[in-house]
Every structure is written in C-alpha cells, then in structure tokens.
Write a protein that binds this DNA or RNA. Structure first.
Lengths: 101, 101
DNA sequence: AAAACCAATCGTAAATTTGCGATAATAAAA
DNA sequence: TTTTATTATCGCAAATTTACGATTGGTTTT
C-alpha cells in the first residue's frame, strides 16, 4: 500500500491491544483458544481432528497465536503440546479490561 | 484464497468476538476509540487534525468501526458527530470479559 | 539405518486490508 | 442559486491474510 514515509507512532498500549486483537480477529483462532481453555493443553493433531481445516492451515493459526504470545508450545516428541501463555494472557486480559472501561 | 466448499460453522460467540477483535485489530482504530472515550463524541475533522493520516483513510476506519457496531454517527450538518455505541460496546465488553475468564 | 509419525514450512493463489488522491454527495451559508 | 464546508465514496496499488497441497525436518520405533 502507498504508505506515509514515516511510520506512524501510536500509543504503546493501543499498539499492544491491536496486536492481541489481531490474534483474536479470526474465529478459528478464537475457537482454538476456547478449546485450550477447556482442555488446559492440546496437540496440533487434536485440533486437526476437531476442526475442518487442513493441518497446514491450523499450524499457521497456531503460529500466529504463538507470535502474539498467547500460546506456547512444549516439545513432547513426536508431538507438540500447546498451552495458553498465562503471563501474556493476563496482560491481554488487563489491556482489554482497561480498554472497555 | 482456496476455500473449503462449505463455509465453516463456528460458535456464534467465537464469531462475534472475532468480529469485534477485527475492528480493534488496527492501532488507528483503537486510537479513535480511545479518543472517543475521552471526548464523549467527535467529528471526523477532529481526527484528521490529530492523526497523520489522509481524510479518506480515517473515514474508512470510521466506517469499519461503524460496521462492527462499535460507533454510531449522528448527522450534525455539515458535520457528522461520532459517538461510541454504548449498547454494542457493552456486548463487546461482556464477550471479552467472558473470554478472558 | 530405515520407516513411521507428527508438525512446521514452502510455494502458490485468491481474498482482504490499508492507504492515498480525486471525486461525489450533502447541507448550510452567502 | 452558487459557493463553501465537511465527509463519504471511488479507483487504484501494495501489502497482508487465509487457505491448500506438497515437502521438509525432527524423533521415535522398528
């Protein structure tokens, strides 16, 4: 896109909130997080069984959630166990709480 | 994108949360909402003065927030006064509250 | 060492998002 | 009625997102 030359500087909290919101902006990713909240943890394969999306697509969504810091993966060869990252989860929770007054 | 033929059916609340999250997924839109929370209401022109983005771009962001239901516009010719849509705001707040346990 | 298992990454394609300038639309004011 | 003020919309271009199948990369069995 034709961008302004200088990158716009936004408020740090606004940027952080937008970052987490972006991670939550797809129903599949919200569903994954809901699933994780109930199951405590899960493997990629569990999600592939539950949701009608290709394994590679689900893996991509997991990657985005991981990049946003909302989940973390633990090597449990040959599987990978994903859990919610409680620390960042709390940060996001606080951000949204404050945002919505 | 190459989509599955049948559209995937997600949980209604997951879809609603994702919809609101999408509206919040850009720092400019978060900034607009922060501004609106402090000022109660504002005109498009106010935002054009405050933020270094083209008027058309800001108008587009406002449109997205309106489509998501988070704000509403009141004709105040020749201006348009934007306010937070309290009803939907409360719904979104509740959704995020529940989501983050 | 070879085979099997599971998940990440690559390559690709289509859709969507973001941004801008230019133009249109609407209503008030002159 | 013409001009002015304000905001929305259009048309375009670049970037990003979403999705898939195919391939690769680690580990563990065999």
């Amino acid at each position: 896109m034709k961008r302004s030359l200088e990158t716009i500087q936004y408020d740090k909290k606004a940027e952080a909130l937008a970052m987490y919101a972006k991670a939550l902006s797809h129903p599949m990713r919200v569903s994954i997080l809901n699933y994780l909240e109930n199951q405590t943890c899960c493997y990629t394969g569990d999600l592939v069984d539950v949701f009608p999306l290709a394994q590679s697509t689900i893996s991509q969504h997991l990657k985005e959630l991981k990049n946003a810091g909302l989940i973390q993966g633990e090597l449990k060869p040959p599987k990978i166990k994903y859990c919610i990252n409680q620390e960042n989860w709390a940060i996001a929770k606080e951000l949204f709480n404050r945002f919505f007054d």
